[in-house]
Amino acid sequence: MGLEEKLPNGIVLTTVEQVVGLARKSSMWPATFGLACCAIEMMSVGGPHYDLARFGMEKFGATPRQADLMIVAGRVSQKMAPVLRQIYDQMPEPKWVIAMGVCASSGGMFNNYAIIQGVDHIVPVDMYLPGCPPRPEMLLDAVLKLHDKVQNTKLGAHREQEITENEERMLRRSLPLVSKD
C-alpha cells in the first residue's frame, strides 16, 4: 500500500513463497528414468534440436539423490514397479513426477497382466503428459507447466489450506457423464 513507491530503485518486493518457487523451478534437475519409447524422445529433448538446457534442466542426473524431478518415460512393468518406487524414495524432498506418455499415465494400450495401469499407483504424479510417444515439444510444454506449478506452490500452512481447497473443488467438480443410468 504505497510502500513500493517509497522504495529506492532496484528493490523488488515479493513473498517468500515466490522466491522459493523461483529458486526451485529454475534449477530443476531431472533424474533419468527412461524406460521405453518415450525415453528416446526424452533424450531428443536433451539434444541440440530441442535443447532443454534453455530451462536449466540439461543436467540429467545419474543418481536420484541429486535429482528433484522424475520423468517416468515409458511403460512401467510389474517387475519394474518396486525399482521405480525405490528410486523415488531415494530422491530428496521436494520432488516432482511427470508421467510421460500414455503408458505411464494410465497403462495406455497395454491393458494387460504385465503393465502397471498408471504410474500413479506407485508414486504421486504432478503432471500427466499424453501421447504415444509425446512429441519433444509436448514434453517441453509439460516441463514449463510444471515450472509454473512449482513457482506458485504455497508453503507451510498456506500449502495445507491449498491442498484442502483443491480437494474440495475436485470433489465438487462433476464431469459430464456418458450415461447416467
Binding site: S106, N111, N112, Y113, A114, Q117, L175, P176, L177, V178, S179, K180
Partner: peptide, 9 residues
Amino acid sequence: GGIPVEYRG
C-alpha cells in the same frame, strides 16, 4: 489380465 477402464461414468 486387463482391468476395466472408467471414463465419465
